[in-house]
Design a binder for these strands. Structure first.
Lengths: 204, 204
DNA sequence: TCTTTTAGGAAATGATCGTTTCCAAATCAA
DNA sequence: TTGATTTGGAAACGATCATTTCCTAAAAGA
């Protein structure tokens, strides 16, 4: 889906001079901090190190920048989560690693910057069907990953067979997204870590 | 805090003709649906049934409308929650009533409209200290109410004495606010109710 | 009654927004 | 080389935004 922008070997014409990923990293930072509507083209272009003309050539319009930044955000964040999960031994430990990762993401500067998917859900989903679809897809994949980890835990013996896996998966999804909301108010890290620890009781 | 607007017996001059609460109910609906920056003065005034001049007389500026609507939102919502809790017999049952209330609030039209406090947290808290303070106050009061219910449950025997009450309270806070985020994607009511039921395991 | 004060409302204001235009620069195909 | 194609970038564009102005209407105080 992001390939159309990232790869797309434009053979003819003057080659693009700027680094697409670096530009999108700046754009997603501005969108995360300001939100979509409060992020002006001038602030975006300045952060991206481009002029308005170049940006409109590359992305079409402001919404195009946003959609590309949205995809980039997930593309950057996914590997961080996967790396975090890889270090844990079993299903239960991976789920703690996941909630602890969100606890850390909900504190400090990153926490106050907020989650671009959560921000899109609250600010844009109601009146933009395409963005609503991408948000729903992101949440569904998040939930599915949690569900898979619960099933993994049930298979490796770290989680009971008799729990409502689907209900718990959706509960952990809500919990982690809610952490990102509370993270906007600069909570103390130990409070968020306590949430991650408490969340483990959902698996009993 | 809202008294300055709601009460304030302006003795002299032409009396206000419009119903402040009704106008604010419309304003908070527009702000909830559109978000702060996408809500234009013209859409707000039309929804409130007023002209721009009257609105600026009454609220000073757009931000003033928002702050009044924010307070009104909480003023309206609080009694609904209290009424919900009053029907439950003990601490544990009240906590289920609370999460079930949020489950219901996260579905259908109201769910897709979203929570004005959550929306303010994600869209405005980073660059508006006063709004960030009101959001933090709202979340702190929510968390405190949950904590009090846990303590009530511990007193009436429906919740174990040996749980981390503070950690669980913050976890339930995150869970309920997260439900409001997921609620923007039109989830099935039974899924959200399963979350409320799963949340009860946090109390064991 | 007359003045003061505040609200209602239409119209105008300046600023900023997202976007387009136009042209030079850089690459590929022929 | 020449022509086609695409990018970079400054400047200009119309639209919309939040806000103000100015006037009339309605109430209280003197």
């Amino acid at each position: 889906m992001t390939d159309t922008i990232d790869i797309a070997p434009k053979l003819r014409g003057r080659p693009r001079e700027f680094d697409m990923d670096a530009a999108l990293d700046e754009a997603l930072r501005v969108f995360s901090e300001r939100g979509y509507h409060a992020a002006s083209i001038s602030e975006l272009t300045e952060a991206m190190g481009l002029t308005a003309g170049s940006v409109y050539k590359a992305f079409g319009d402001k919404r195009g920048i946003f959609l590309a930044a949205f995809d980039r955000y997930r593309q950057v964040r996914q590997p961080l989560i996967e790396a975090c999960l890889a270090e844990a031994a079993n299903g239960r430990a991976k789920l703690f690693a996941l909630t602890a990762f969100f606890a850390e993401s909900s504190c400090g500067e990153i926490g106050r910057r907020g989650c671009l998917v959560v921000g899109s859900a609250t600010e844009l989903a109601l009146f933009d069907e395409e963005i609503a679809g991408r948000v729903a897809t992101a949440f569904n994949l998040d939930e599915r990953r949690i569900l898979d980890l619960i099933r993994l835990g049930q298979a490796d013996g770290s989680i009971s067979q008799h729990v409502d896996a689907e209900g718990i998966a959706c509960a952990i999804l809500c919990l982690t997204k809610g952490m990102r909301v509370i993270g906007k108010t600069d909570p103390k890290p130990e409070r968020m870590l306590a949430v991650a620890e408490a969340a483990m009781k959902l698996l009993n």
